[in-house]
Lab assay of single mutants.
Amino acid sequence: MAAGGDHGSPDSYRSPLASRYASPEMCFVFSDRYKFRTWRQLWLWLAEAEQTLGLPITDEQIQEMKSNLENIDFKMAAEEEKRLRHDVMAHVHTFGHCCPKAAGIIHLGATSCYVGDNTDLIILRNALDLLLPKLARVISRLADFAKERASLPTLGFTHFQPAQLTTVGKRCCLWIQDLCMDLQNLKRVRDDLRFRGVKGTTGTQASFLQLFEGDDHKVEQLDKMVTEKAGFKRAFIITGQTYTRKVDIEVLSVLASLGASVHKICTDIRLLANLKEMEEPFEKQQIGSSAMPYKRNPMRSERCCSLARHLMTLVMDPLQTASVQWFERTLDDSANRRICLAEAFLTADTILNTLQNISEGLVVYPKVIERRIRQELPFMATENIIMAMVKAGGSRQDCHEKIRVLSQQAASVVKQEGGDNDLIERIQVDAYFSPIHSQLDHLLDPSSFTGRASQQVQRFLEEEVYPLLKPYESVMKVKAELCL
C-alpha cells in the first residue's frame, strides 16, 4: 500500500493539533497551500530580480507567473513527485505547466533550498508574528487579574506546605514575570531571523556568478533584492546548502521555554482548584465526569500541561538535527523538520489560546482563602504575639514557653481530632496574655502579614508589564474561544 493518505478522510490519521486544537490561522501558515504558494512567490521574486539585473526574462513571463501564483494543481504535483521522487522539481514542473512561456526560467540558477529553506524562514517569521500578540493578550488578562487582587491576602506555599502570606495578585505576578520573559525572547528570536537568500547549491553562489558572467556586484544585488522582497532586513552571508540548523534550535528553545512557563502556571491553577481557592472557567453544560456528576475538573489547565510537556520535548529534535548536518548538509534534517517545526508552533498556539481562555474567566473564592488563612495564621502570628507581650512588660522566655504549650495543644486538636485551630481562643482565655487581649485582632490582621506584596504588584505592572504590552494595544480586544 502506498504511503500517505487522504487526510480529510475519517479513515486516515490526522494530527489532533490540526484537527482538534490549533487555530485556523496557525494551521494555514503550515498548510501545503501556504507552503507551495510561497515557493511560487519566491520563484517570481527571483525572476523579477534577475530581470532587473539584466537576464533575458520578459515582462510577459513575469506576468504569467504572477497570474498563476494561486493556480496550484495539487493532484498534478503529487503525481509528479511520485514520478520524480523530488518535491521541488515536482512543483517546478507543475508551475511550468500553467506558465508555459515562463517554464524555462522558473528556478533559474537556484537549488531546492532556495524555495525550501527560504519558505521555512518566512513561515517561522509569520508563525512567530501570530504567537506574539496571543502571548501579549494572556499577559494582559493576567495583569488585569493581578491588579484587581493585588491586596487580597492568601496563604503562600513553599514545598506545598503553608508559608508566609502573600497576595493573590502577587502570586499571579510570578506567572506574568515568566511570560514577559517569554514574550521578550519570542520577539528577540523573531527579529534575529535572517533570510537564507540566493546562495546556490553549497552556499557559494557559483551558479549565479556564472549567470551574471562573473559580476560579483550583481550577485550581491540579486541576494539583497530577493531578501528585501521577502520582507527581511538581512540575509546570511555564510550558508551551506541550507541555512544553519542552529536557527531551528533557537526558535524551538524559546517555544519550549514558553511551554515550561505555561505548565507551571496551569499546575498552580490545578492545585488551587483542589484547594477550592480558584477555578478555571466551567461552562453551564460542561460535564466533569461521566460517573461523578459533582466533579469540576480543571480540564483546560490539564490540557495545557499535557501539550506543554510535548512542546518542551520537541527542542531535542533540532538539537540532534543540527549535530548531524555533515559538511554542507545531509538530508537527516528533512523529514524531522517537516514534523517538529509545525508541531512546535501548533502546540504553542494551542496552549496560548487555551491559557487566554482560562485567564479571561478565572474565578476566585475569597471566603475559602480566608478560612485557610484562619487555619494557619495563628501559628504564624506567634512571633508577633511574643513581641507584643514583651512590649507590655512580659518575659520573652516565659511567653515563648506559654505559646509553645498552647500551640501544641491547638495542633493536637487540628491533627488528632480534625478540629479547627483554636490557638487564639486559648490565648484569649489565658490570664497571662490579658495585657494584649485587646491587640489580638490587630495582630491577626492578614494584611499585616503580606509585606509589600501589593506595592510590588503595582510597581511591576507599571514599570515592566504595561510598557512591554504597549506595541500590542491594537490587538488586545480579541477574545479566545474554545470549541473543545
Rank of each mutant, 00 (worst) to 15 (best):
Q456T: 05
L42M: 06
A388Q: 09
L222W: 02
T450G: 09
S67A: 11
E462L: 14
Q439A: 14
S12E: 14
L255N: 08
A47G: 08
L406W: 07
R196E: 11
T158W: 02
C98D: 12
L108V: 09
C173Y: 00
V262Y: 02
T450F: 04
Q409L: 12
E279F: 03
N68A: 08
F460I: 05
G259D: 06
L461C: 10
I105R: 10
Q456P: 05
E228Q: 15
Q375F: 09
L155I: 03
D144P: 10
L423W: 03
V413N: 11
I424N: 07
Q285S: 12
S395T: 05
D445Y: 09
K229N: 04
A22N: 13
G200R: 00
R14L: 15
A348R: 01
W45C: 06
P471E: 14
N185P: 06
D332C: 02
L121Y: 01
Q164C: 08
T204H: 05
S334P: 05
P471C: 14
Q286G: 03
P471D: 15
Q241H: 00
D73I: 05
G169V: 00
M380A: 06
S67Y: 11
Q456D: 02
R33S: 08
I339T: 14
Q61C: 12
T382I: 08
L135I: 12
Y466R: 12
R374E: 03
L179T: 08
T52D: 12
C113A: 11
D59M: 10
W175R: 01
H93W: 12
P162D: 02
V364E: 01
L152I: 09
S412W: 13
S454M: 11
A453C: 11
V115I: 14
S323L: 02
R371V: 04
V226A: 01
L121D: 02
L193Q: 08
T313W: 10
F36M: 07
V429G: 14
Q375V: 01
E280S: 02
V168E: 02
M89I: 04
S12A: 12
G5V: 12
L444E: 06
P467V: 13
I369W: 02
E464Q: 11
P133V: 15
K147Y: 12
D32C: 11
N357L: 02
A260N: 07
S306L: 02
V189L: 08
D333A: 06
T201R: 02
D192E: 10
R245E: 03
S207W: 03
M380Q: 08
E81I: 00
M65F: 06
A273K: 13
E280R: 04
M387L: 10
R141W: 14
I369K: 00
E464I: 07
L69V: 12
W175P: 03
D223I: 00
K75Q: 10
D129A: 12
Y432R: 08
